[in-house]
């Protein structure tokens, strides 16, 4: 019984992933390119960085990087609490 349920779940997941792989959008051809074109055209003029990825991560999407740094800080605080040394 357990094996049948497992096989059924595997079949459902396999069909789902297979169909989504078949109907995947063609690689390297996005349908909406307005924002990408704006970043590629004006990124160097507005920020002065030659690397477009850095100009997006630290300038256009600065809040995202701030949240990422805060998440890392919180993770370190959590590890420090979990592995603290108890007083004897």
């Amino acid at each position: 019984m357990n094996k049948k349920i497992g096989f059924f779940a595997f079949a459902v997941v396999f069909v789902f992933f297979f169909l989504s792989a078949v109907y995947l959008h063609p690689f390297g051809e996005p349908s909406e390119t307005d924002m990408d074109d704006y970043f590629i055209d004006n990124g160097q003029n507005e920020t002065g960085a030659n690397n477009v990825v850095t100009s997006i991560v630290f300038d256009y999407r600065g809040y995202d990087t701030l949240g990422e740094a805060t998440v890392l800080f919180t993770a370190v605080a959590g590890v420090a609490v979990a592995f603290r040394r108890l007083k004897k």
Binding site: T47, G48, A49, T54, S55, F58, T65, L72, F73
Partner: peptide, 17 residues
């Protein structure tokens, strides 16, 4: 030494990480 404030932010985030 281009890109204004971006290298300073890179150094700050690098030290933190």
């Amino acid at each position: 030494n281009t890109a204004g404030v971006l290298p300073l932010m890179n150094i700050a985030v690098g030290i933190e990480v």
